[in-house]
Amino acid sequence: MASTSTLKSAALLDQMKLHLASDAGKELSKKINFVYQFNISPKKIGIEEEIFTVDLKKGEVIKGACEGKPDATFSFKDEDFVKVATGKMNPQMAFMRGAMKIKGSLSAAQKFTPDIFPKPSKM
């Protein structure tokens, strides 16, 4: 398997990885130019977290924490991350509801929107 994680988010982030290598993805990296870290938990924030780094400076997705400090760190439940990444829930709402926790620079966090994620196509 391309990734051993059973999280739904991992599937999206795998796709993100491929996306960032494409022209549209390179555009995106240029536009955002931040490093985000995602701590994703299967059921409850903070428990059994899996860490992913989306580096929109270099255009990479790495499993695990990044070297150095990310511009912003987000903590999510798996389900909520998928909701935000697919546009079902907007990030502000997620934050207000406590479904998303943020650490780091606010201006970096504000650039985290559903449009940075590629949309999964359906069979």
Binding site: Q15, L18, H19, A21, S22, G25, P120, S121, M123
Partner: peptide, 13 residues
């Protein structure tokens, strides 16, 4: 459609 979706997900839009 399945073929297309797979290609899309592997960034062969």
């Amino acid at each position: 459609n399945k073929l297309g979706a797979t290609q899309a997900n592997s960034v062969q839009s």
